[in-house]
Design a protein around this nucleic acid. Structure first.
Length: 911
DNA sequence: TTGCTTACGTA
DNA sequence: CGTACGTAAGCAAT
């Protein structure tokens, strides 16, 4: 071919280097001692995972460790732990450490977590039966010294000071765990008045409260140091005991045996049998994948970032195989068509530099990779021919393309007149299906996890898609984008294998990818709003806020910040001396339920005004939030998140259009602000009625429940008549409400306690209600217990489309975590199956609308509801289309009931 | 400035 | 002591 492009080749490779000439720097840490310090330094109530596992000690310890590694850059590291077995010290002196309070339960559970962190960091840790951590440290410090190493010992136990030499420094925590003092020989002498090797002599005389070793009464560090100095050590002091005058001398003579015992006990052993050699302590690259897992589980996001930033990438584990191989082809202007032609119909990986929000996007660069060969195109300076070639290729459904996070890429390219239609794989969606509980799926993380390679980045930590300034930045950005494209291409087949192994292939290709394409259109369309109406509401709610606030101030005679829970607590529980409500971490709750209860008890007008203020300020906030997000086209373009909800649901952000109020009249007024856009006839909403209960009926196979739905009766009335043993006509509204609450609660793992609380009945009655329910609907109970059992066995739950949620905590030792996981296991198949069905419905609706050439379009999805903008003359067709395609989205043992409404506003369309 | 906590809207 | 989300304000630690 005559116009074959020039090719320049850039090889990118990583080198692993070791530096054999450097003297060893050894860091030895007393694990228990430092973890214990961390436990008391950081408030336990501020450090817990959402499931309730305390993590303050893990956090403090890990933070300290990271700092030490960063600041000291050790070549060798070891953490020693105590083991509970009796030591030579307790054998010689049963009272040893006898005054120590029992280890707090919340601390004990954190030690294994610390060890998990160490494992991920590939730092050896050791605990030996019958040996204290300090003895292990003493032994290894001795070994390391013999190797000529510089040794740092990190311990909160002063006994380690005896190990200090010119080669050995003790890092002793002064306050918390971040403020460590370097105890060198000079520092020890300065602080205690004796050289390090004499420190145990001094401690023997003074005693050590924390070890329950009494010293000589009346002898403190000053006296002890003086004696030791005068007599050349403890032996000299003991020999001269008879000559020491005064009360102190007398006490010394009386306590000689205790002093000698103290000295025997505080001598650290330097010849412990340690199952590790010096070489075993050498630093090795961290297990980056393991770090992600452990830090994810501990919810240490900041700490993880700190850690990963600090560890140079070439040090990374298993990355030594080399970075991504990459051949950058520089195309001549006008050469794109030929380049694409030469690729045939092969699948190419696409990466896009672009940015945008709220319906205003732009793309400025793309990279296309065919295996290791990659090109980048500057979209701001593209020749006409190349632009056409690119647009034609992107829009062609028969030109398969792989992406990572296709939705923003599609928006950005669409803004340049290049819609993308051939997406066959998205490594972000694929990774989400494999690990739905993760909160981020960075390409670089996936490359590490699946390819054991590092994604090269010339720009370092610069945010993806950030604007580049300067020429060097330009070429870096292009190189990074090229690397991303190559990485996506290499990653896709590997992640696909994982997807297949997890049975999620169909979900990816037949559900998530088509849904993504629909979401692009929905987000681009946005929903029209009546700005004047919003302004009016804002003014109205604003006035209501002011009125309620004034009324509240009048009721107590002064002003307070009604938005500050802290100040409210002051007013309610101190000034007004009201009964205490439920406890929170920082005091007593002032939530709406609690305030309503307090009002029932006290009738205090402040509470009424406060509640009114809360409601009004909330509404104003919602309205203000919406006003801020109206785009230039007079519409609100939300972003649907497809990979954040662990159950498979979508979520909506910026703004969240899935939580627009509906339960109060004022809330409805906000829905009036969402209107049909110009050129369209009306809005239409279609929602599934009781989809979760129908899924419950289907999954449980409970004949009673299935019958109820097949008869098409009022579900809660029907169930109520069975549970209470009365005719349906005699089910009161109170009975119906109880049944409704319970039915829904069951899908969330509701307990009798929770039910009683919600219904305001006592626990016994709630328990009875649940028993009656399960007597009549035994299939439901069997299903619920079965689903947890199976999840415990398999490690995951599954929806009707095979979407999995992994729940390792089902076998946790921690009851709170386990209970939480059980409730997730109960809910995930139900909520997740509903999500599956709605997604399938969206695809069917969009497909059929396209086939029938309708101009009406999907705008929103609110979990069980679809909102459509209906083009003129299409209302009838769209109504039946939605009814049919939504009802037909799944084949359950009960019908899927769909209700449809239409109107000028979202409120009118709702029902 | 940042992250945590509390509170509250939806399904 | 009921699941799944997102947002905003106050507040304490930087």
């Amino acid at each position: 071919m005559s116009n074959a492009p020039d090719e320049t080749i850039q090889e990118v490779s990583a080198t692993a280097s070791l530096d054999p000439g450097t003297p060893a720097r050894v860091l030895l840490i007393d694990g228990h001692s430092m973890a214990f310090r961390a436990y008391f330094a950081l408030p336990v109530e501020n450090f817990a995972t959402t499931s309730g596992q305390a993590t303050n000690a893990v956090y403090g310890f890990t933070s300290m460790l990271i700092n030490l590694i960063r600041d000291e850059d050790p070549t060798h590291v070891l953490v020693a732990f105590d083991k509970s077995a009796p030591t030579h010290r307790t054998q010689a002196y049963p009272e040893y450490k006898g005054t120590r309070a029992a280890t707090p339960e919340e601390f004990r559970g954190q030690v294994p977590l610390i060890q998990q962190v160490l494992d991920a960091l590939r730092i050896p840790h050791v605990g030996i039966e019958g040996v204290e951590a300090d003895d292990i440290l003493a032994t290894l410090a001795t070994v390391a010294q013999a190797e000529g190493a510089q040794v740092l010992i990190c311990s909160g136990d002063r006994d380690t000071l005896q190990l200090v030499t010119d080669q050995v420094t003790v890092l002793y925590p002064r306050k918390g765990v971040s403020d460590l003092v370097r105890m060198t020989p000079v520092a020890v002498e300065e602080k205690y008045g004796v050289p390090p090797q004499r420190y145990p002599d001094l401690a023997a005389l003074v005693g050590e409260t924390s070890d329950n070793l009494p010293g000589v009464p009346g002898v403190g560090p000053k006296t002890a140091a003086k004696w030791i100095g005068a007599h050349g050590g403890l032996d000299g002091v003991i020999a001269a005991a008879g000559e020491i005058r005064g009360k102190a001398g007398e006490n010394l003579r009386e306590h000689l045996s205790q002093v000698m015992l103290n000295r025997q006990l505080n001598a650290l052993l330097r010849d412990v049998e340690v199952p590790l050699t010096f070489a075993d302590l050498a630093r090795v690259p961290i297990d980056r994948e393991g770090v992600h897992e452990v830090f994810d589980a501990l919810q240490f996001t900041v700490l993880r970032d700190r850690l990963l930033k600090m560890i140079p990438q070439e040090e990374d584990d298993q990355v030594s195989a080399g970075a991504l191989g990459m051949t950058t082809t520089v195309l001549e202007p006008g050469g794109l068509a030929a380049w694409l032609q030469a690729r045939g119909g092969r699948m190419l990986a696409l990466a896009v530099d672009g940015a945008g929000a709220r319906g205003a996007w732009d793309a400025w660069r793309v990279a296309l990779a065919d295996g290791e060969e990659v090109i980048t195109l500057d979209l701001t300076a593209l020749e006409e021919a190349d632009e056409q070639a690119l647009a034609g290729w992107l829009v062609d459904t028969d030109r398969p393309v792989l992406v990572h996070d296709g939705k923003p890429a599609a928006h950005a390219l669409a803004a340049r007149g290049m819609p993308v239609h051939g997406v066959r794989g998205d490594t972000l969606l694929a990774a989400y299906l494999c690990h739905p509980d993760q909160r981020s799926y960075d390409l670089s993380d996936l490359v590490l996890r699946y390819l054991k390679r590092e994604l090269p980045s010339a720009q370092g930590e610069q945010a993806q898609g950030a604007l580049d300034l300067g020429l060097a930045g330009e070429s870096d950005a292009a190189a990074d984008l090229a690397a991303r494209a190559v990485a996506i291409g290499e990653l896709a087949p590997v992640v696909d294998t994982d997807v297949r192994a997890r049975g999620a292939e169909d979900l990816l290709h037949r559900v998530e990818l088509p849904v993504q394409e629909i979401l692009v259109d929905m987000e681009a369309a946005g929903i029209a709003v009546d700005g004047d109406h919003l302004d009016g509401l804002a003014a109205q709610f604003d006035a209501a806020v002011g009125q309620a606030a004034q009324a509240a101030y009048d009721a107590i005679g002064h002003e307070v910040n009604l938005g500050s829970p802290k100040q409210l607590q002051q007013v309610l529980f101190e000034e007004l001396d009201m009964p205490k409500t439920r406890r929170t971490k920082t005091g007593y709750t002032t939530d709406a339920d609690a305030l309503a209860e307090l009002f029932a008890k006290t009738q205090h007008p402040f509470l009424e005004s406060l509640l009114a203020h809360r409601e009004s300020i909330r509404l104003r906030q919602t309205v203000d939030g919406l006003r801020k997000t109206v785009a230039a086209d007079g519409r609100i373009h939300t972003t649907f998140q497809q990979t954040v909800a662990a159950t498979g649901r979508l979520s909506s952000t910026d703004p969240n259009l899935q939580n627009i109020p509906i339960r109060t009249e004022e809330g409805y007024r906000i829905r009036e602000a969402f209107v049909v856009g110009a050129g369209y006839e009306c809005l239409l909403t279609a929602d599934y009625s009781q989809i979760e209960m129908r899924i419950m009926a289907h999954l449980s196979g409970d004949q009673g429940l299935i019958h109820a739905f097949n008869e098409g009766e009022d579900l809660h009335r029907f169930v109520g008549s069975r549970v209470f043993g009365v005719d349906q006509a005699d089910v009161t509204s109170a009975m119906r409400a109880k049944i409704k609450a319970m039915s829904y609660g069951l899908a969330y793992g509701l307990s009798a306690f929770g039910l009683s609380k919600q219904l305001g009945i006592d626990v016994g009655e709630a328990r009875g209600l649940m028993e009656d329910y399960f007597d009549r609907f035994g299939g439901v109970r069997d299903y619920l217990t079965g689903v947890v059992e199976q999840a415990r066995r398999d490690g995951y739950t599954e929806t009707i489309l095979g979407r999995r949620r992994y729940l390792p905590d089902l076998v946790s030792d921690n009851r709170q975590r386990r209970d939480m996981a059980e409730r997730m296991a109960l809910n995930a198949p139900i909520q997740g199956s509903a999500a599956d069905i709605v997604k399938v419905a969206m695809i069917r609706v969009a497909d059929r609308a396209r086939r029938e050439g309708l101009a009406s379009r999907l705008l929103l999805q609110v979990h069980d509801e679809l909102v459509v903008e209906v083009a003129p003359g299409e209302l009838e067709a769209v109504t039946s289309l939605l009814r049919e395609e939504m009802a037909g989205a799944a084949d359950l043992s009960v019908p899927l009931d769909v209700s449809v409404g239409s109107g000028r506003t979202w409120r009118e369309a709702g029902h």
